[in-house]
């Protein structure tokens, strides 16, 4: 019964203090917008690095003395490695043909060169579902220990550089995110403190008629829940719409046609919405504490 009354009081408070409610929701929305845009940038950078890495794949060069009969067995061994999407074999002759085609008008440089001078190789693509840079490294490291393998290439330098950059932005995101959440908690706590000051008489009357702390604070905490939810949902919608708009702009531009801008996954947005609710409730609880002293 008390829960029902608290709910009713919260709704009535929201209706009667629409300006204050809107102000708090605006503060939450702006803070969450900053956080979401930063998360979006970081996530897309990570996504870009992974996309690039998965396109690069791994090339395994075999020793020339590896007999042709052992190729099917090698193919099978590679295919059975964890997280491998596809394996393509290129014989020395195929590699030579590809090179000739690539050189086109300048293929005369290959005249007199033995068609088997290039080593046979396997081109490996890592399964995109389990793709991560660490997995590429692991697979490459394992393959390079095989006695049939002479060299393993996987665009290591590119990936390493991008990974360092991506890692830095991830750390910056966590740091900035924490700062933003603390700032939000502080701003929300102060906004709520101001509204609580404005309603001091009401709190005094409630205490006077024997309301418990839960009865007094309950509606405020419920309002904080709504504020956190509404503010973060609004910010999520704005960021989603912006992402869609930017994506449509990028797809029209010939230079960025291939760039795919992706919205944050559900776990990110759920985390940010949940965090926003927790921050608002915590901010309210902190600012209410002194008013609940008898």
């Amino acid at each position: 019964m008390i829960a029902g009354i608290i709910y009713k009081r919260a709704l009535s408070d929201i209706r009667q203090n629409l300006t204050n409610q809107a102000m708090t929701i605006l503060v939450v929305t702006l803070s969450m917008l900053l956080l979401l845009f930063f998360a979006l940038f970081s996530f897309n950078l990570r996504h870009f690095v992974e996309e690039l890495g998965s396109k690069l794949g791994i090339v395994v060069y075999l020793k020339k003395e590896v007999p042709q009969e052992s190729i099917p067995a090698l193919y099978k061994r590679i295919s059975e490695l964890k997280g491998i999407e596809s394996v393509n074999y290129t014989s020395s002759e195929d590699a030579f043909r590809k090179l000739k085609k690539y050189l086109a008008d300048e293929q005369q440089v290959l005249e007199g060169v033995d068609a088997t001078f290039l080593p046979p190789s396997f081109e490996i693509q890592i399964d995109r579902a389990v793709f991560n840079i660490e997995r590429i490294r692991e697979v490459a490291a394992e393959l390079s220990t095989w006695k049939e393998v002479s060299k393993v290439q996987y665009g290591q330098e590119w990936i390493d550089r991008l990974e360092v950059f991506s890692g830095l932005t991830q750390r910056a995101l966590v740091g900035a995110g924490l700062l933003l959440l603390i700032t939000t908690a502080f701003v929300v706590a102060n906004t709520i403190k101001l509204t609580t000051y404005a309603r001091q008489d009401e709190l005094e009357i409630l205490r006077l008629v024997g309301a418990t702390n839960m009865f007094i604070a309950g509606p405020f905490l419920l309002e904080a829940f709504f504020q956190g939810l509404a503010g973060s949902l609004l910010a999520t919608v704005i960021v989603y719409a912006t992402t869609q708009y930017l994506q449509s702009l990028l797809s029209q531009h010939p230079l960025f046609k291939e760039v795919e801008l992706v919205f944050l996954p559900l776990s990110y947005t759920a985390g940010i919405i949940g965090g926003s609710i927790i921050v608002c409730i915590t901010g309210t609880a902190i600012s209410m504490r002194r008013f609940l002293k008898l």
Partner: peptide
């Protein structure tokens, strides 16, 4: 010490709601 913006009913009901 009444809630000015609330009705007579709301003010009196407060003591029972708690």
């Amino acid at each position: 010490k009444l809630l000015g913006r609330h009705t007579v009913f709301d003010n009196v009901a407060l003591s029972l709601e708690v």
